[in-house]
Design a protein around this nucleic acid. Structure first.
Lengths: 182, 182
DNA sequence: AAAGATTGAGTGTTCAATCTTT
DNA sequence: AAAGATTGAACACTCAATCTTT
């Protein structure tokens, strides 16, 4: 009775279309899927406990802290924090109410809004970062061998290239900025 | 001015604690993070468009379709679909209203609830699966080389082992079931 | 009292509509 | 009219409280 219809077929492929997953492909996909679903809540839990912000808000503060003048236009910030503009607007409202960021129209283009990290915001992420990085190490980095880390870099780039080319471009622009700043 | 406080430091490590990320570790982490955030919405978009359900609801139907009698107890189903019991209860309510699953107390243990795929639910996932699998292939599987697929299996297992050992156990139990059923 | 599951209030995200500036 | 950003309603998820059965 155990007919599988969701990701794989027991029977040989009908005609290569639809293309079901091989056993190893299925195992890789299920593993990725489990990470996709379990990792964000695990990271959120630590941040929520230690600082009362979620992972997306951390990304906002982190991106600002790494920027010249600790300032970015909202649209750039959305890309760096991996979120939509709408999501960023809502989150920025929350962070602004806490006094951790401020927003103001840009001189020159007043339809562009620039977000800046306040001193209180700087202190907040400075306090949060060590704990968070430690958790990232514990859950991901230290669980992998150096070879796996290298493989993960390639996998991330390949998947992003097909799933969201713009995100890959963001990633690359950020790497360049990092290299230049050291 | 560009001091980085979020994941990496330009300066040498103060004392190995907090342990900031090396450039390659940072790149791997950012790539994984981008996947973590961008992939689920991309998959949801296709499912939403083609069938009006989200990825979690797909997981529920998929898990049931692969089970003997197309039936599972709610607590098992939650694990297989990668969600909490509460989340499953809410989602099951939605799917039940659509007539795609049904719930009933188990004979013997009446505090255990068993969820079953209805005929309409079976037809729904039978129709949805090919499109969804094609999208998974397009975004992930076909973007990777066979070597990367193999590496991904190991990475997934390692990360889950540290982030959520119980999830790894679920994964393994499922692999066994698959092997036995063919 | 514990196990299994559900419920409802509170919160965050999405989507479409809107507002402002160019 | 287009670009940049915000708003509010609808919806899904989380957390704690609750209900039922053992």
């Amino acid at each position: 009775m155990n007919v599988q219809v969701s990701y794989t077929r027991c029977m040989p492929r009908p005609s290569d279309d639809p293309p079901w997953l091989s056993p190893e492909e299925l195992e890789a996909w299920r593993g990725l899927l489990a990470m996709l679903i379990r990792l964000p809540p695990a990271l959120d839990a630590q941040l929520q406990r230690d600082t009362g912000i979620n992972h997306f808000e951390y990304g906002i503060l982190a991106a600002l802290s790494e920027s010249p003048e600790r300032t970015l236009r909202m649209s750039q910030l959305a890309g760096l924090a991996n979120g939509s503009q709408s999501r960023l607007s809502h989150a920025a409202g929350r962070l602004e109410q806490r006094g951790w960021i401020s927003r103001a129209p840009a001189a020159g283009n007043r339809r562009v809004i620039e977000a800046s990290l306040t001193d209180a915001g700087w202190r907040a992420i400075e306090k949060a970062a060590p704990h968070h990085v430690r958790e990232v190490r514990r859950l991901v980095i230290d669980a992998l061998t150096p070879e796996q880390i290298t493989a993960l870099v390639g996998i991330g780039r390949s998947v992003l290239a097909s799933a969201d080319p713009a995100a890959l471009a963001w990633l690359d622009s950020r790497e360049l900025g990092d290299a230049a700043s050291c």
